[in-house]
């Protein structure tokens, strides 16, 4: 067992919307983020669809979520490319995000982020999409590692710049 918090977030399941991801680039257009720690955050065998795991990354002041969704997701790992991870702080004003029905919801001002589509704000106030955690799956062990963050974690001048 890794050192992650395994609090299961309040969530419900439902059929997620049909996605059309076949042509979507997996490579993106940015260089891999640098200077981030590699941290084991879970194992594929322990992940159930729509049952998120909580962990902190890249340090203990940054809560994150790891979740397996029903279909392929941007940045997803695993056989169905459906395992994704995000900062659990709303990019709008830093409130906690709750996973439910394929999206992250903030109950402070009702921003909602689509976890299958790069954490995009599809409704609500957050002008910045939620920061997505770069994942690596070790095929031999099934271990999932967090290895970077794409996008700024709320409340920071830099993701790795807290003193």
């Amino acid at each position: 067992m890794s050192d992650i918090s395994r609090r299961k977030f309040l969530q419900t399941t439902s059929a997620s919307a049909v996605l059309f991801l076949s042509g979507l680039s997996r490579d993106g257009n940015t260089a891999p983020p640098k200077g981030y720690p590699s941290k084991k955050i879970g194992n594929i065998k322990n992940l159930k669809v729509n049952e998120p795991l909580a962990f902190n990354y890249p340090d203990d002041k940054s809560p994150c979520l790891l979740v397996k969704v029903e279909n392929e997701a941007v940045g997803g790992v695993g056989p169905g490319k459906s395992i994704v991870s995000f900062s659990a702080l709303c990019t709008h004003m830093g409130c906690p995000l709750t996973y439910s029905k394929g999206r992250l919801v903030c109950k402070c001002h009702y921003s909602m982020f689509d976890v299958a589509l790069n954490g995009q704000t599809y409704q609500g106030l957050a002008s910045q999409w939620v920061a997505q955690i770069v994942l690596r799956l070790d095929a031999a062990t099934g271990n999932i590692y967090a290895e970077g963050v794409e996008g700024l974690i709320y409340g920071r001048i830099g993701n790795l710049k807290l003193s």
């Binding site: 979507l24 997996r26 490579d27 993106g28 257009n29 940015t30 983020p33 941007v74 940045g75 589509l117 790069n118 995009q120 999409w129 920061a131 997505q132 770069v134 963050v149 794409e150 996008g151 700024l152 974690i153 830099g158 993701n159 790795l160």
Partner: peptide, 8 residues
């Protein structure tokens, strides 16, 4: 991975 260039 990102759909557009992000900043950290």
């Amino acid at each position: 991975m990102s759909l557009f260039k992000r900043k950290d």
